[in-house]
């Protein structure tokens, strides 16, 4: 192999197939590691959607429920339920650090779900900090009806949710 007269370039050329073989083995090992790695399950989006829907449609949250006929009216909210205490009782996590929300019905004061957490996470959400320790902000606006003083009214409602990223 190392005959007199063999130059370095020639030896490098002879080594070339070995480099290809080494590269193939490394690709196989990386493939194994990728293939057998447990994939992360990302459920943040669906958790947020479920939280939104729970606020809007849950009988014990905001949705108007007629006890006489046992019917929940979708798209109609009960003003008596639009308060912090009711929201926090009807959607109660063991740890109060997951979600914070602000619900604003036009013409009414905003109602908070975990106000202290909202005030903590809102700057983080606005700053759009990436990675753990940040927060994700989403908003939904739609038109909702409600009964006030015996009259059926309709107004836009804005639901803002911030989810702590951890």
């Amino acid at each position: 192999m190392d005959d007199p007269g063999d130059s370095d370039e020639r030896r490098m050329l002879e080594m070339f197939p070995k480099f290809i073989f080494l590269a193939a083995i490394m690709i196989i090992i990386i493939f194994f590691a990728y293939f057998f790695t447990i994939n992360n399950l990302r459920t943040e989006t669906i958790e947020r959607e479920i939280f939104f829907n729970r606020i809007i449609y849950s009988t014990n949250a905001l949705a108007y429920y007629d006890e006489d006929i046992g019917r929940t009216y979708l798209g109609r909210i009960d003003l008596e339920k639009l308060n912090t205490t009711n929201l926090e009782k009807s959607i109660n996590y063991s740890n109060n650090y997951f979600f914070a929300a602000r619900i604003t019905l036009q013409g009414k004061d905003p109602v908070y779900y975990h106000k202290e957490l909202w005030e903590t996470l809102e700057p983080l959400a606005k700053a759009k900090i990436r990675g753990p320790g940040g927060a994700d902000y989403r908003v939904k606006e739609f038109r909702a009806s409600y009964i006030e003083n015996g009259t059926l009214k309709s107004a836009p409602i804005k639901i803002e949710v911030i989810r702590a990223r951890s």
């Binding site: 459920t43 829907n53 449609y57 849950s58």
Partner: peptide, 19 residues
């Protein structure tokens, strides 16, 4: 295990919000 834990946890949230 991770899948089922999350699936069931989210199912609990959905079920309790349903009518």
């Amino acid at each position: 295990k991770i899948y089922y834990a999350r699936d069931l946890g989210l199912l609990m949230d959905i079920g309790m919000a349903a009518r």
